[in-house]
Nucleic acid binder design. Structure first.
Length: 578
DNA sequence: GCCGTTTTCGGCCCGACTGTTTTCAGTCG
């Protein structure tokens, strides 16, 4: 199946093979950039091909468009096959070793005939690498250690955002209290609220008089969380935590804060675009300042707003900085009015002690009031999900009575809807009959079991639920669990089309283990006119506070308040119910 | 290999740190 994912991976492998071969670096980067853009593209390229629009994807010219067509038609790429015949593809796994790049891989292959990780490890242990040019005993030892780390943790393992965020706060708190530190911030993909994080980037701004960069660096490298110090310099250091997370710290004077923050928030692709714009104005841009190329004059920016203003752009929120059209939108004055947490008045997916939640209906309602919500929907699991104490029809009707009573008690403070999170069973049937669903205020259908079925079987299950007139919303559509479970193999374009046609709401589940729909599917859903919900799926009152992860995911998909039903007041949602 | 209000050729973002060197290549972000 030639999905975007498969095509992108093939182009990425071609880029690596070309780089090992020593091809022109810009040709290499073209393949790599194309891979990234295809991976992030909201539509399947197979559809674009049918419309003759492959070259509308940034970074895809005629040559790569032809190669994509070849892959779609034949299921393979002749260029890749020929490269693979020339260079062992097992060399690609060597690139996964930290500190081992294309030049060194080429070198050990050509001089020692090393093709695999095992052979590299054996050679390192035998002391065969230290005599190579620009190598020594120290590099050999480091390489050996990094090979073992790779075996232990696997390649480029990314951690869920929800796991990284508290770590960032903890480290910043430790550094923020030091003398001469005027500002700290998390940057990188964490600040852009990506769903998973490779490395954590942290920044510290120093007072020009009292700041002591060396002291901050020493403190950072001496943190108890640091399992290893990978680099320790005057402005930049890197530690590795026990869980394998790399943490980079940059320290600069406060006068450079704007350019520093912009630079390390990225994304890299967004930064390159900013630099190109600067160049056209006769400026160069780095993390320290703008420099007038002609005169050498510096323009310092203490805030990011000044950075964008210097480029003639409005401020672009970090969540949009992926080079996915935000620069063009900013230039045209058409950045979206992104949804904010303050727009949210409802949460439509949560559990109570009736199934696998930890609190009662009233406790959930009180916690929702405390967070400013105007209405909530109780959606406990349905009967077939025995492990979660799913409700029989009889218990569901008992729960209806309890919610009626709770509404009387909470009158004027919050409204409580009665709903369900109903299983879409493995055989494709729904867990409650239509006449029971008709008794409820709001019906969620969900996939939890048999997520590994073949695509057509999964699609049949999901489409049947979407087509059911009683089903209002599909929760966490793919069922993925970060970082380990991929989620069901779905044809998202068909899912989104069906949801748009039937006006079935699709959920952005705010739990950082899910963030499902993910950002690019949110974007495509909006293009197709699908209504979205952002829900916490809270099983405990504390989990209401996971909402910011869902908001950020919606923002990354360019969602505005109107796109999200949780911003709708009670009456509008009642009327808007399909 | 892509791309263009310096447009079909000749560019292509910029800097820190390490380990090996005696001025820099390789890697990374």
């Amino acid at each position: 199946m030639m999905t975007n994912h498969v095509i992108a991976q093939l182009f990425a492998d071609v880029a690596d093979l070309l780089e090992i071969r020593g091809d022109n670096i810009h040709r290499v980067l073209s393949y790599r950039k194309a891979a990234e853009n295809i991976f992030a593209h909201t539509q399947e390229v197979a559809l674009l091909r049918a419309a003759g629009q492959l070259t509308s994807i940034p970074g895809i010219g005629q040559t790569l468009a032809d190669k994509i067509e070849e892959m779609l038609d034949t299921g393979k790429l002749d260029f890749y096959e020929r490269l693979a015949a020339e260079i062992p593809v097992t060399l690609l796994e060597l690139l996964q070793v930290e500190g081992l790049g294309p030049k060194r891989v080429k070198q050990v292959y050509e001089t020692l005939g090393i093709k695999t990780l095992d052979e590299l490890e054996t050679a390192a242990k035998a002391g065969q690498l230290r005599d190579l040019p620009k190598m020594g005993a120290k590099s050999e030892e480091k390489l050996l250690k990094n090979i073992q780390a790779l075996r232990l943790r696997g390649a480029d393992k990314r951690l869920p955002l929800g796991e990284v965020y508290p770590i960032a706060q903890q480290i910043l708190a430790a550094l923020g209290g030091m003398a001469g530190v005027v500002q700290t911030a998390v940057a990188g993909s964490t600040r852009r609220w990506r769903d998973t994080i490779g490395d954590l980037d942290l920044l510290v701004a120093l007072d020009a008089e009292t700041g002591d960069a060396a002291a901050v660096m020493d403190a950072f490298c001496a943190l108890p969380q640091a399992a290893e110090v990978a680099a320790h310099g005057p402005t930049k250091s890197r530690i590795v935590l026990g869980n394998g997370l790399g943490v980079d710290l940059r320290v600069l004077p406060a006068a450079n804060w704007g350019t520093l923050l912009a630079y390390f928030t990225g994304s890299q692709a967004h930064n390159i675009r900013l630099r190109e714009i600067a160049q056209k104005q006769g400026l160069s841009l780095n993390e320290y300042a703008f420099t007038n190329v002609a005169t050498g004059d510096k323009i310092l920016c203490a805030t990011e707003e000044e950075v964008y203003a210097t480029l003639g752009l409005p401020f672009i929120p970090p969540v949009l900085r992926e080079d996915r059209g935000e620069i063009e939108a900013a230039q045209a004055g058409q950045l979206p009015q992104l949804i904010q947490q303050s727009d949210i008045v409802a949460d439509l997916h949560m559990h109570t002690t009736w199934s696998d939640g930890k609190q009662t209906v009233l406790e959930m309602a009180e916690a929702a009031v405390a967070r400013g919500l105007q209405h909530i929907c109780i959606t406990d699991h349905s009967v077939s999900l025995g492990i979660a104490n799913g409700l029989s029809v009889e218990r569901l009707r008992q729960q209806a009575a309890e919610i009626r009573a709770a509404n009387e008690q909470m009158a004027g403070r919050i409204h409580i809807w009665h709903g369900t999170e109903m299983e879409i069973k493995a055989d494709g049937s729904l867990d409650y009959p239509d006449e029971v669903l008709a008794e409820l205020d709001f019906v969620i259908a969900s996939l939890h079991v048999s997520l590994g079925q073949p695509r057509e079987q999964m699609m049949a299950r999901l489409l049947k639920a979407i087509e059911n007139p009683h089903v209002d919303m599909i929760a966490h559509p793919t069922g993925r669990l970060l970082p380990e479970r991929e989620g069901a193999d779905l044809d998202m374009e068909r899912v989104l089309e069906a949801a748009a046609r039937t006006q079935t709401i699709l959920e952005i589940n705010a739990n950082p283990r899910r963030l499902d729909l993910r950002d690019i599917h949110v974007r495509r859903a909006l293009e197709l006119g699908v209504k979205l919900a952002i829900n916490t799926d809270a099983h405990h009152v504390d989990q209401f506070d996971l909402l910011p992860f869902g908001i950020a995911t919606a923002q990354r998909g360019w969602a505005t308040a109107e796109n999200v039903v949780n911003t709708w007041p009670l009456e509008k949602l009642r009327e808007g119910r399909p």
